[in-house]
Simulated assay, not measured.
Amino acid sequence: MLEIILDEFHYSTLWNGGILIYIGFIFIVYFLLLPQDKQYPIWKQVTFVLGMLAVFAALGSPINVIARIKFSYHILQLVLLLLVAPPLIVIGFKTEIFERARRIQIFDKIFGFLTKPVVGFLTFFILFYSYHIASVFNFARLDLYINYFFMLSLLIAGILLWMPIVSSKFLNAKKKRTFTILTILFFVPYSLVLLLTDGSLYLVYTDVELFMQSLAVCMPNIRELPPEFAAALLPFNPTEEQMQGGIMLLISQLVLFGIALFFAPKYSKGN
């Protein structure tokens, strides 16, 4: 059914050229403009590229459109954007530019504040849970720029969250384990809400009018299509989708943060 539905969308709707251009610009800056030792490891460059490809998959591929039809794909977006891309970007990023910037006192203070583990932790989870309040989520999904604002803000917050976990510059092994476990515990409540709530939390997946408005954000001419097509776009049980999303988020964060927890002692401050 999903394949039949997607056939109705234009290629330019399924693949976001704007996101691709932005990521292409980031690659140009990363490979040609950022200062770094000539011996910078190839594997780190590959890791950064994979992280940015995960961002594109989340925001610029058909996953972004399907996420407006199936809630489980919204969770897949979150997994790619918040759990896969940030650690890869942090591991692969060329940090020499920040080291140079920190020689300037004001930048040193800004970076020093933003890279505090507690700042990244609080920023991320305040944004994450605020975005997923039903009224906020429904409102954000009806506006292209507001939704992208939340998504990109979460990506940046995700990078701040992952920095103390995958970098050796911030925490020792014991504190890193504690920080990672707390991160896991703070993800769990939302997963449980998705699993245990009786009925769909979000009207953009159940109310036909709001659903159509949500799709119109990325497909402006959808209102010109016959009502039968609109009805065909809602073949998925929203409660089941919500439960699948909860399971996906719970398992994904346990696996990915579990991997980070296993490697934490090897890449810790003071080692």
Rank of each mutant, 00 (worst) to 15 (best):
I181A: 13
Y148P: 05
F150D: 00
S252D: 00
F262L: 06
Y11W: 14
F170Y: 10
C218N: 14
L78H: 08
I75G: 04
V49I: 11
V208Y: 04
L81Y: 03
L144D: 10
F56V: 07
R68H: 15
W15C: 00
G245E: 02
P62V: 05
Q45Y: 06
I19N: 05
G245I: 00
H132Y: 10
P35E: 08
L161P: 01
Q45L: 05
I181K: 05
K94W: 00
L76V: 03
F107I: 01
L154D: 01
I75C: 06
G24L: 06
C218T: 14
F229T: 00
I259H: 09
I222T: 07
N16V: 04
I104W: 15
V204F: 05
K44F: 09
F93C: 04
W162A: 06
Y129V: 06
F125Y: 13
L154T: 02
I19G: 00
P265N: 08
E241F: 06
Q213A: 10
Q39F: 08
Q253N: 13
R100E: 11
Q77W: 03
N172T: 13
F56A: 04
T115C: 06
G158M: 07
L127M: 13
R102G: 01
G270K: 05
F139H: 14
Q36F: 02
M248K: 01
K176C: 02
L33T: 09
I126L: 12
M151N: 05
L14R: 11
L2E: 03
K174D: 11
V217I: 09
L185H: 07
T13N: 07
M243R: 12
A85L: 02
A85Y: 05
L33I: 12
L225S: 03
R100T: 04
L215S: 08
G245F: 02
I89H: 06
F128T: 11
L171A: 00
V188A: 12
M151T: 03
T183L: 07
P265G: 08
M248Y: 00
N271P: 05
I184Y: 07
F139M: 12
L185D: 02
Y129C: 12
L88F: 13
L2H: 02
I259R: 10
L33A: 14
M163L: 10
V65I: 07
E241D: 10
M219F: 11
I146D: 00
V84F: 08
M52E: 03
A140Q: 07
L50T: 13
I104G: 01
V46C: 12
I159E: 01
V136E: 08
A134H: 12
P226V: 01
F121G: 06
D7W: 04
P164W: 06
Q45P: 01
A232R: 10
M163R: 09
V188T: 15
L53I: 14
H74D: 12
P86T: 06
